[in-house]
Simulated scan of single mutants.
Amino acid sequence: MNAVLRVPPDDVPTLTEVVRPSDLAAAVEPADPPVDAERVVLRVVSHMQDLAEARLRERLPPLLEQLVSELLGGLVREFREDLLLGLHDTVRQAVAEELARTGLR
């Protein structure tokens, strides 16, 4: 029986070597730091709030301007109609009173 002598690779410890945990830790690449899910969520929410606020600042003024214009236009029409009706009634009543006072009926 011929024994073949094999030499182990350099990075494999032999039975005569003492391997310490610190030696193993140095050989292992450091892992990525753990992801803090709450921090990621807070960043995303903060970013989304900033985007939403910017969008509101951009789009809200023209919409409000249009809405106020439409509301004021409607109010002016209603006020004008009420004013004309009131004025009509006031003039009719004043004419009736004047006719009654002067006896021209």
Rank of each mutant, 00 (worst) to 15 (best):
L87G: 15
S22A: 14
M48F: 04
L24H: 02
M1H: 08
A26Y: 01
L5P: 00
L104N: 07
L72A: 11
H47I: 01
H47M: 04
S22F: 03
A94P: 04
L83T: 12
L15K: 06
E17T: 10
A94C: 02
R20C: 02
A27W: 02
L85H: 11
E53G: 08
G74P: 02
D32M: 06
D32A: 13
A54V: 00
P30L: 02
R80C: 08
P62Y: 06
L42E: 13
L104H: 07
V7D: 12
A54Y: 02
A25G: 04
R92K: 08
D82P: 03
E97S: 11
R80Q: 13
D10L: 12
E38S: 00
L64G: 03
G73C: 06
D23K: 10
P61K: 05
V76A: 12
M1Y: 03
A100Q: 08
A27R: 15
T14L: 07
D82F: 04
V91E: 00
G74E: 14
A52I: 08
V19G: 09
H88N: 12
A54L: 11
H47C: 04
L75P: 00
R92Q: 12
P9A: 09
P62L: 06
N2R: 09
L24E: 05
A54K: 12
D50K: 11
L71Q: 10
S69M: 01
G86I: 02
E78T: 12
V12A: 07
S22K: 09
L84C: 07
V91W: 05
A37C: 01
V40M: 03
R43L: 12
R6I: 11
A96M: 02
R6W: 05
P8Q: 07
T14N: 07
G86W: 04
M1P: 13
P34F: 06
M1R: 11
L71V: 00
Q49H: 05
V44D: 00
P61N: 04
A52Y: 09
E70H: 09
P13N: 06
A27S: 10
T16N: 08
E38L: 09
A25F: 05
E98A: 13
L87V: 01
L75A: 05
E78Q: 14
D89F: 02
A96S: 13
Q49R: 14
P61Q: 00
L75S: 03
H47Y: 10
H88D: 15
V4C: 03
G103Q: 00
L60F: 10
D23Q: 15
L42G: 04
E53V: 07
D82L: 14
M1A: 11
A100P: 02
V45H: 01
A27G: 03
R6E: 10
H88P: 03
D11H: 14
D50E: 15
R55W: 08
E58K: 11
P8M: 05
V18E: 13
L15I: 09
V35E: 12
G73I: 00
T90K: 10
E53Q: 14
R57H: 10
D32R: 11
R101T: 10
V68R: 15
D50W: 05
V7I: 15
R101F: 12
A26C: 01
L84R: 13
G74V: 03
V91H: 01
R6N: 07
L104E: 11
L72T: 10
L51K: 06
V7C: 06
R101W: 09
R101K: 09
V45I: 14
L63I: 06
H88L: 10
L60K: 09
L5W: 04
R39T: 06
P34I: 00
G86H: 11
V68M: 09
